[in-house]
Computed example of a mutant assay.
Amino acid sequence: MSEPFLEVNSLEKVYSTKASFFNRKPERVVAVDQVSFTINHGEAFGLVGESGSGKSTIGKSLLRLHDITSGSVTYKGQNVHELSKKEMRRLRPKLQFVFQDPFSSLNPRLRVGEALGEPLLDHGLATKANVRKKVMDVMELCGLPTYHIDKFPHEFSGGQRQRIGIARAVIMNPEFIVADEPVSALDVSIQAQIINLFQELQVQKNMAYLFISHDLSVVEHLCTRIGVLYLGTMMEMGSRDQLYQNPLHPYTKALLAAVPIPDPKRKRQRALLKGDVPNPANPPTGCKFHTRCPIATAACAEKVPSFREVEPGHFVACHLVS
């Protein structure tokens, strides 16, 4: 791998809720808690965890769709959150986002050709004379018949709409894409097609991804390194082989145990988690996972575990891992 071109250092995002009749005091919700990782050129980095773990907040923070409370996001030596609006606008084409819902992310009043061509014209990357040709080229690249160019979003299936969303990002010729659960709303057969499309585009365009998902079986096929989040905290991070063949954190083991095996004769030993996900406005002391951990000790409730490297490239935050 080449040197990382995107670095996230001690990223923190805190939301403050307003006081109400039922909640007299405003609450402080730490959505992302001191998260750090790097992404290299052409690399697909996976981010997994339950709903509400902070995955989407991190993805949007990387592209400055959210402001951050502290920490930094550095892209090619530039701190994204310190750039002026003019500088950030020049950078936008290189940093793109693929949204989870392929229908609500598209303007229902714009035809596909207009939706794909508008950002090119807006950033001066095409002229009115050649924009249609560029749109048709990217539609072919993303597996969309070009005769659909004048159709509206409601005339497409869910898988086709997601291809449109991917095409809208790819048409800007980006270097980095945040894909926020892009296959979670699709049928399994369509999911495979979209994953294959991401892999093909990665090879052809040499793009890097932050691929957000709650499904570890999906992430396994696309990503070379994976981070596991719980309540905004990175619990484990490592290469695909390290995480799938030698998971260390109890939370990672529980997530992997929930992945179904496509063989009716084989049975997987389930690692059932007790209790519910804690309120992020009032997280547990010590290790945030200790209230649900099957092997937690008294020390887990008292002291926050450090996020340390236990083998080259394999990091974990757990008192019980030596």
Rank of each mutant, 00 (worst) to 15 (best):
H81C: 05
V135N: 01
M136E: 13
Q78S: 14
S189G: 06
R90K: 15
E181P: 02
M172G: 02
I58C: 03
G113H: 04
R90V: 04
V73Q: 07
R92D: 02
A115M: 12
H154V: 11
D137C: 01
K86N: 11
E82M: 12
S84D: 08
R161G: 10
K60Q: 14
V112T: 11
V135A: 02
K94S: 12
L63R: 07
D180F: 07
G158C: 10
H81M: 02
L141D: 05
Q162Y: 04
L62S: 01
R109H: 05
R90I: 03
F156S: 00
F156C: 01
K76E: 15
V188A: 15
R111I: 04
T127I: 03
R92V: 09
G77Q: 08
K85F: 11
I149V: 15
P119S: 03
P145I: 05
D187E: 10
I68E: 09
E155C: 05
R64C: 09
T74K: 13
K85V: 12
L141S: 05
P182W: 08
A185R: 11
T57L: 07
N173H: 13
F152M: 14
I190M: 12
D122V: 14
M139S: 06
E155N: 11
K86F: 04
P145D: 06
G143L: 05
G159K: 10
N173K: 14
P182H: 08
E87Q: 15
S184A: 15
H154W: 04
K85D: 15
N130R: 01
H154T: 06
L186S: 13
V188W: 01
T127E: 03
L125D: 02
E181A: 00
G165P: 02
E87H: 11
P119C: 06
V98N: 06
A185S: 13
G143H: 07
Q100N: 04
I190D: 03
K94R: 14
G117I: 00
G71V: 12
A167W: 12
P102S: 09
V73A: 11
G59R: 03
E140S: 13
D122K: 13
S53A: 15
S104H: 08
G77N: 09
K86S: 14
V170Q: 05
D187G: 12
G54E: 00
G159T: 10
R90A: 13
V98A: 10
K133M: 00
T127Y: 00
D122A: 14
I68N: 10
E82K: 15
I149P: 01
D101G: 08
A126F: 01
S84W: 11
D122H: 14
N107V: 09
E114S: 14
R90C: 04
I149G: 06
P119E: 01
V131F: 00
N107P: 09
K85A: 15
V170N: 01
L121Y: 04
N173E: 12
R89T: 13
E114A: 13
H148F: 13
F152I: 11
G159C: 13
E140V: 07
R64T: 09
S61N: 13
S70N: 12
S70Q: 15
G158T: 09
D101E: 12
